[in-house]
């Protein structure tokens, strides 16, 4: 519910903001998630889809990820069916086509786990997210960009969840 609230806030901000130099974009990438606990680590794969609104100095985006490959730690199988995030990207002024992204936002990560003899478990982790990324435009097609980022989606007392994604970013 809180994610929906933030999504509505994002839409209001997008609709109410000035449209000069503003662009909408779509980004698609595979993401390797690292679900790290004090006792062990699993690394499921996800597909990462982002819709965003871009200005020269910042971006606001909605990211939706869905698991495409489980990962196992001995008998434990971990799947991440969904991740919903809202991110604010600050783009520090840098000369050249390469852009650096400082990312701040919130995420909800749903983790399903199965273990022999134990009832299947499903847990949701909700928290502040932060990260760093970069993007580079293709010279022949400036609207198309290659983006790479690492985002700490959740940082708890005993669990850390982060993703690394490398994808294609297209501005309309």
């Amino acid at each position: 519910m809180k994610s929906l609230f933030y999504f509505k806030c994002l839409l209001i901000l997008v609709m109410a903001s000035p449209t000069l130099h503003a662009q909408y974009y779509l980004e698609l990438s595979p993401a390797l998630m690292n679900v790290d606990t004090t006792e062990g680590t699993t690394k499921p794969w996800l597909v990462d889809i982002r819709l965003g609104y871009s200005k020269p100095q910042y971006q606001l985006e909605l990211a939706v990820m869905s698991g495409v490959a489980d990962d196992s730690l001995n008998q434990l199988t971990v799947n991440v069916p969904s991740v919903t995030s809202l991110f604010y990207h600050y783009l520090p002024p840098i000369n050249g086509s390469l852009k650096l992204h400082l990312i701040l936002g919130a995420s909800q990560v749903k983790v399903d786990s199965t273990y022999p003899g134990i009832a299947d478990l499903s847990d949701s982790f909700y928290g502040m997210s932060y990260g760093i990324g970069m993007e580079e435009s293709f010279k022949s097609l400036p609207q198309l960009k290659l983006s790479l980022d690492w985002i700490q989606l959740y940082r708890g007392d005993q669990i850390n969840i982060n993703t690394t994604s490398l994808g294609i970013h297209y501005e309309f």
């Binding site: 004090t38 008998q75 434990l76 478990l121 005993q158």
Partner: peptide, 29 residues
């Protein structure tokens, strides 16, 4: 947004996954 999120960590909610990882890391049944 930032101040709201800073208090979002939920240690109790982490117990399930931590317990499973503890068992899995030793491969116990």
């Amino acid at each position: 947004f930032v101040f709201t999120l800073l208090s979002c960590s939920d240690p109790d909610n982490e117990t399930n996954l931590v317990n499973l990882n503890a068992m899995a890391s030793l491969d116990l049944v």
